[in-house]
Simulated scan of single mutants.
Amino acid sequence: MMPNLLVVCLGNYCRSPFAQLALARRGGPHMAVRSAGLIGKWQDQPAHSAMVNAARRLGYDLTAHRAQQISLDMLEWADKVLAMDASVLATPPGRLRSEEREQTAPLPRRPGRARPDGPGRRRVPRMRCAH
């Protein structure tokens, strides 16, 4: 059976769209990957232009991406929910049934690499986020 992975960040506008493409490429036809954000602020908006450009330089195309807010349907679809940082991981469990909580796991990160989504945050080059 092909695993279904849901990648979640704050807005589904920088990190999780890129992670979706990278994981889908790495998993190939053996994995289905979707992405979502905790908040709907960027609902139906394209990925941040800086992330689109960074992804392009790494061989990924984010131009078709449109942000989506996490939904119960997405959570039911997912076999695993991958959080882009600890704060995201701390948020969804309140929305999850107990058996779903056991299936959540943070993405591994290197120290100093957590980066909140969105404008108004300290600017961190998107290429660093993409590596």
Rank of each mutant, 00 (worst) to 15 (best):
H30R: 14
M31I: 14
M31D: 14
A32T: 14
R34E: 15
R34V: 09
R34Q: 15
A36C: 11
A36N: 11
A36P: 11
L38T: 07
I39A: 13
I39Q: 12
G40M: 06
K41Q: 04
K41H: 05
K41T: 10
D44R: 10
Q45D: 09
P46K: 09
P46D: 06
A47G: 04
H48F: 02
S49V: 07
S49N: 02
A50Q: 08
M51P: 02
M51S: 06
V52K: 08
N53S: 10
N53P: 01
N53L: 02
A54C: 03
A54R: 02
A54D: 05
A55G: 09
A55V: 12
A55F: 04
R56N: 09
R56Q: 14
L58D: 15
L58H: 11
G59F: 10
D61T: 12
D61H: 07
L62G: 10
A64M: 14
H65S: 12
H65E: 09
R66F: 11
A67L: 05
A67H: 05
A67R: 05
A67T: 05
Q69F: 02
Q69K: 10
L72N: 06
M74G: 07
L75E: 01
E76C: 03
E76D: 10
A78C: 02
A78G: 01
K80N: 02
V81C: 08
V81T: 09
A83T: 00
M84F: 00
M84Y: 00
S87E: 15
S87K: 00
S87D: 15
V88G: 04
L89D: 15
A90D: 09
T91M: 03
P93C: 12
R95M: 12
L96V: 06
L96T: 11
L96A: 15
L96G: 11
E99S: 13
E100I: 03
E100C: 03
E100Q: 13
E102T: 14
P106C: 03
P106F: 02
L107P: 10
L107Q: 13
P108W: 09
P108I: 00
R109V: 12
P111H: 08
P111V: 06
G112L: 07
R115F: 01
R115G: 01
R115C: 06
R115D: 01
P116Q: 10
P116M: 08
G118Q: 02
G118T: 04
G118I: 04
